[in-house]
């Protein structure tokens, strides 16, 4: 397997079986390949309509769920067990409300089996990396959704994850908070070399953050297009609309298309 690849998803399919023998195919032979960039990290998005299997795919990549068929490779090694190597950040705020910022991060260090996990001494480093310095003893419920997401990101960084899987986490963020989180993710990718795989139904979010977009079809999810996104052109007039059109054109008239919410 190619060790220059951060992630390789090979022919991954997933079906759920009901009690009456009924079967629902959620993912159909998904193939994704994310190469290591020459410098820094990479932010990749999976864009698809609601309920098309994005969360299931991220859970399979992280090792929380098993695929019905196919395989996942992280940096060339087969990955079939959740161990912190590809950490999943769920859509709902997942920082533990009974632990303060520091304890949340220490928890990740304690449980992670990833070879890259940080030492306990690096907790403060993680806290400052996500802009939470001075809030070490604060509890998640005392603050906003953006604050909680920062804790979740710091936690996966501390776990030494090689790929951070973000599951449509911007849905509950608005205005400035959303902009700040986007800036944080770009900063972590650029300066700290962190790699992100972000799933979303919001094309604007995907375009504003990603270097590469995988467009997934309605259920059963299939990768129908791969788009390279040049983040430096975001300010150019017409650039974002052209990417949006490209994504929209992947869906036929009767299909549900990803939303265009701002």
């Amino acid at each position: 397997m190619n060790t220059d690849c951060i992630l390789e998803v090979k022919d991954v399919s997933k079906s759920f079986h009901g009690l009456a023998g009924a079967s629902l195919t959620v993912l159909d032979k998904i193939n994704i390949k994310i190469d290591k960039p020459s410098s820094g990290g990479i932010i990749t998005s999976i864009v698809s309509p609601f309920n098309s299997g994005k969360t299931t795919l991220l859970k399979i990549i992280s090792g929380i769920e098993k695929p019905s068929s196919g395989e996942v490779f992280i940096e060339g090694k087969i990955h079939n067990k959740a161990d912190g190597t590809a950490a999943f950040v769920p859509e709902k705020p997942s920082s533990f409300p009974w632990m303060n910022v520091k304890q949340n991060i220490q928890f990740a260090i304690e449980v992670s089996k990833s070879p890259g996990k940080k030492e306990k001494a690096n907790v403060d480093e993680m806290i400052s990396a996500v802009g939470l310095a001075g809030y070490e003893d604060h509890f998640p419920h005392e603050k906003s959704a953006g604050f909680r997401l920062r804790i979740s990101i710091a936690r996966v960084l501390a776990a030494g994850t090689k790929l951070i899987l973000l599951d449509d986490n911007f849905k509950i963020l608005h205005g400035e908070t959303k902009k700040e989180i986007i800036q944080l993710i770009k900063f972590l990718s650029r300066e700290h070399g962190e790699n992100f795989l972000f799933s979303t139904s919001n094309i604007n979010d995907a375009v504003s953050i990603s270097n590469k977009l995988f467009v997934m079809s309605n259920r059963p999810g299939k990768i129908i297009k791969i788009i390279d996104n040049d983040l430096s052109k975001l300010d150019e007039s017409g650039y974002i609309s052209s990417i949006k059109n490209e994504i929209e054109n992947c869906f036929s008239g009767h299909d549900r298309i990803p939303s265009f919410a701002n």
């Binding site: 859970k59 912190g84 769920p90 533990f96 936690r155 996966v156 776990a159």
Partner: peptide
């Protein structure tokens, strides 16, 4: 909350840790 369980599992927490530090809390 499934979000707590999923994130703990994905970080590599075992069943005993999840019971004691997540479910119990």
């Amino acid at each position: 909350g499934k979000e707590y369980l999923d994130s703990a599992v994905s970080l590599g927490a075992d069943e005993k840790t999840i019971s004691k530090k997540i479910k119990w809390k």
